[in-house]
Design a protein around this nucleic acid. Structure first.
Lengths: 210, 210
DNA sequence: TCAAATATCACATGAAAGGGTGATTGACAG
DNA sequence: CTGTCAATCACCCTTTCATGTGATATTTGA
């Protein structure tokens, strides 16, 4: 990187905060002019130090980290915020990203990786710890029904059931599998018989029990 | 990694395909027993080689890469699919992730990074090129695509949704709540609007995402 | 206090789902 | 060779669902 990256830390644990600060100030190309222990403090010092990056803990006394991100991004949208927290709580992840954070690391991240992540952040990336990234990606995929133990469904029937459980219309299933809608209906009738259900939703619930 | 990772490549460009194959087979811990040039071919050879990972190009002759991912995840949900493509086209990204891909790299990724990404993939991560990750993350701040969390359902609407997701018929819900079936309809219409879905099953899937 | 949100109900229309019956083809086992 | 089963398709019919366009009463909040 050609320029110095100025980073502000927001973290209430004294040891962690000082550790990070020392790490950053000891690394070439990175600088941490300020390390705050509360969100309120951060909002005050940001105009003074004009950082490109904020490292943000979530659990803070007073204003929490996510609220703080909202304020930061409202006022200084060009600042990149990276969450830095202990837990991979799904709710926190999505709230943080919705608030405008563009990176999300767990505190167990080794120092070298943390510095890499910061530089990736200012270069237009969105560094995330592996398990975080997986959770984010999985919000896009629909839950699929894969296998139902001890139901005598044929391979074809299971295949059709999996489409059924994803909300496909009959005609969409037909198009997807290159068969007639009548064939789809025939299969579904047999599926319902075997599973002892009468509707698509009941079939889905039946699958989910296993 | 303790075990050998078996990888199948699906890529129509001969040079790229062979290059990847040589790279993988020349690296300790990785093995590429097969490299296909079409999705159809991949679906045939997967049961033979039982890979943990599939590297998938998007632009393929015949079945395209995204359709191929749908088939793969339907049949072998445990296989991790990484998209490997030249462009960072937003639409392709989301379609791929929706189809069940859990990694997404650009072809410009250097060899060492590619191998790292594959091992991250089998270890529960979701490696993405920086610009891809950023696009994914930004969908959360874009209310159009990811408006999930507080969906503003009223108490009554949630109540009706819960019956709906248990498979109750409209008239059963009406009877249960001592209201007219027309009222049930009205509530469900508003629920669908708020959740941005069109059918009962889609609503149920939406609920299950939390 | 007045507007907005909520909960209730009605009528109408077309699409989708579910159920019954029956038929053809191919594969496989006895 | 023959019967069974899986997969395919075609009618028929009824019910349920999804959506549009209304309306009225009650509650809430700014």
């Amino acid at each position: 990187m050609s320029e110095l990256i100025r980073i502000i830390i927001v973290e209430d644990d004294d040891d962690v905060r000082e550790g990070l600060r020392i790490l950053i100030n000891g690394s070439e190309g990175y600088s941490c002019p300020m390390a705050c222990s509360t969100g309120e403090e951060a909002l005050k010092v940001i105009p003074v130090h004009q950082p490109q990056v904020v490292l943000m803990d979530i659990n803070l006394p007073g204003m929490n980290g996510i609220e703080c991100v909202v304020c930061i991004k409202n006022t200084w949208p060009e600042i990149q915020v990276m969450m830095l927290t202990v837990f991979d709580n799904t709710d926190d992840i999505f709230k943080s990203l919705t608030a405008g954070a563009t990176g999300y690391l767990l505190k167990k991240t080794p120092p070298a990786k943390l510095l890499d992540a910061i530089s990736e952040l200012v270069n237009g990336g969105s560094p995330m710890s592996g398990e975080i990234a997986r959770k984010v990606v999985q919000t896009f995929s629909n839950p699929a029904i894969h296998r139902i133990p001890e139901s005598n469904l044929t391979a074809r029937e299971e295949e059709i059931l999996s489409y059924l459980s994803k909300g496909f219309l009959y005609k969409e299933i037909a198009a997807e599998l290159f068969i007639s809608i009548e064939t789809v209906r025939t299969h579904i009738r047999k599926i319902y018989q075997k599973l002892q259900v009468r509707t698509r939703t009941e079939a889905l619930l039946m699958c989910m029990k296993h």
